[in-house]
Amino acid sequence: MMRRLLFNLMVWSAVLIVAFPLFWMVVTSLKPQLELWARPPAFLPIEPTVEHYVTLLQDTNFLVYFRNSIFLSTATTLVVIGVATLGAYSLVRFTYRGRESLAMLVLFTYLLPSVVLILPLYLMMVKLGLANTLFSLVLAYTTFALPYALWLLRSFMAGIPEDLESAALVDGASRMGAFRDVIFPQLLPGIISTALFTFILSWNEYLFALVLVNSDASRPLTTGVMNMLISSFNIEWSLLMAASVMMSVPLIIAFAFLQKYLTRGFGAGAVKG
């Protein structure tokens, strides 16, 4: 019993150390400005306040950035999942020349550094007159989101028994009919996992947004919030921490309600041991 207690204490102290920065983020966002400069700092706010959240929503561009991020991540996810689901179906269940090489090309692009692609993409967007638009970011985000989603969906698809599809075909269904009625329902949990991961990846992206968008009207949260840090004369840490908490809200929602899909995506991803 004593050993179990000690072991639990050890594990939980390690977990709490890892989680401490996130705890501190929430605590700081709730502290009034004066308490921030208190020494020693209090571990919990003495007079908790939501004033920084109010300031954030009323006096800054935060809501614009938030809306941009929602639009951007949703659009990227929809496009990528649509293209990747069909692509993965083709890569797993059809035979044609070059299929294997194509699969390896997907894996290759999945590992490719964004910093190589960004230079030509920047030139391309400037030439097409798309610079500073959210659309340019949707296009740019497919460079990492599509290989990722394809690879993930491919392994989900491979897990669906082939007999199911054959049975439907014997019963007279067409390939696409079998896809709609048999494969798709089986694949749905995998699609949800992949969509969730794609959304989070797009939500967190920074480099493309930094290079391709330079106007407040179409800045997403990542560069927008970072801009608040750089452009403010003296850094208001509680405001930035409030922004960080708000920025993590979709993530917290995903964690609370969709954790099953999150861990499943992890298992099916690149590391299938």
Partner: peptide, 20 residues
């Protein structure tokens, strides 16, 4: 869940917190 969180949180958020 607590262990997983740093991985999913945006790098921007992680860096802001750590700089603080």
């Amino acid at each position: 869940s607590l262990i997983l969180f740093p991985y999913f949180v945006s790098t921007v958020v992680a860096v802001l917190v750590w700089r603080w």
